[in-house]
Nucleic acid binder design. Structure first.
Lengths: 229, 229
DNA sequence: AAAAAAAATTGACGCGCGTTAAAGAAGATA
DNA sequence: TATCTTCTTTAACGCGCGTCAATTTTTTTT
């Protein structure tokens, strides 16, 4: 994939949900101060505490956002996939990054300059609304996350994660392809990898699911939902 | 306190951080579709799952936002004090409330209509930016919350809460007045009330703090910070 | 001021889940 | 294909914190 000129950057931007509806000129302006960067698997994009330069938009690959704990473990806050952005919130405040970003795969990311994003928002109410909606979505996701880690047992966490994934698939065949390693998933659900493994084994034994590596087949949707709550 | 006419509503709005800088006309327009409501202590403002009508702005009293769990317990997500707002995020999405709101004191709240808020944002980029900043702040708060409940022990939770409160006070005398009952604080920190009580007792015994009802005197700031991490 | 209700404290107990350790499976490297 | 690394699974163990229960303190009601 080659992104060597401004034109293609603007084109890519125009395909992002956040930017549809912007005029060609507006896109060009944003594209002008947008730079592309590439990171290899496991490479750190930024550390908690650094100063943000703008909004990141994942084009290819996957970025993991996590809060490192002093004891070495970490809490995975978000897995960012292509088409999604991160670092917006910090752009509207003047604060350092509250978490670290690390690539889980070789990735290509666009970095949209802070100031030109703010300028674009000033001139385009529709963009402002989209940004507001986007932040609101993140806010709701975070609240589900808190709900998850605050008042659910390990089995409930796993079951409700799987149930959520089922809802996201369009088909009626409940096969879930985990988007990340089980380690990472465990961290996202706030579980030790061993616990996740045990819960999956247990759900398999009760005939609710069937696990084949990173593919999980849901056999009994009703009992899955029941386990989730 | 009487708020019976539009003029005073506009005036109150103009004093809210979110609305400073708006023109008189803009304020009047928002005020026109803003209504005041009062709730008594323990009264429910809205339940999880209901449809939102707009943004709530607390004038007097205190509102508790919490996610009820099926087992009857609840996770307190936020305590909203005078001058603060809630329900913005849901205004920019078309989703039901993800949590319930309940007054912990007799309260007076303004309800700003969804549509006129959106209109005001369209016409005023500064307001848009303020809303973005406001949502970003909430987002960061939620992330600290997750950090709190995901990778801290009970003593760390309490200590970091107290340390945070210290930072919020302007003075160098570290006396913290809990803004709510210890039960509610415990729920916010994701602790059983008994655990909170034990931790406070323990911190007292080590000479780090001194507890007098809802007033907490911090005696050893350094060791408090150390306990927090 | 007395009675009732709610909140806070204290102790005993048990369970869920993290920790440690070790072995097996899957992917990467050459 | 063989070796090394990383990921996943399984088992044994222990601790932190929630649960239950009883008492004391504080707040509210009359």
């Amino acid at each position: 994939m080659m992104l060597e000129n401004r034109h293609s950057v603007a084109e890519i931007l125009s395909r992002q949900p956040l930017f549809v509806g912007l005029s060609e000129a507006e896109l060009q302006q944003i594209a002008q101060t947008t730079r592309e960067y590439r990171v290899q698997k496991n490479e750190i994009v930024f550390q908690k505490g650094e100063s943000p330069q703008g909004m990141h938009l994942v084009i290819m690959g996957q970025i993991k956002l996590a809060i490192p704990s002093p004891q070495g473990s970490e809490k995975v806050m978000h897995i960012v996939n292509p088409g999604q952005s991160f670092g917006e919130a910090v752009t509207f405040l003047d604060k350092p990054y509250p978490l670290s970003a690390q690539a889980t795969q070789d990735s290509i990311v666009l970095l949209i300059d802070k100031q030109s994003l703010l300028d674009a928002i000033d001139e385009n109410p529709r963009l402002a609304r989209k940004m507001l909606a986007s932040l609101s979505v993140r806010l709701h996701e975070l609240m589900s996350d808190i709900e998850n880690c605050a008042l659910r047992t390990s089995a409930q966490k796993v079951a409700s994660y799987l149930a959520q994934e089922c809802r996201n698939t369009a088909t009626d065949i409940w096969t879930i392809e985990l988007g990340s390693s089980k380690q990472t998933l465990a961290a996202r659900l706030n579980l030790a990898p061993e616990t996740l493994s045990r819960v999956l084994g247990q759900l398999s034994k009760s005939g609710i699911i069937e696990v084949h590596g990173r593919k999980i087949q849901v056999l009994d949707r009703a009992r899955l939902d029941e386990t989730a709550r």
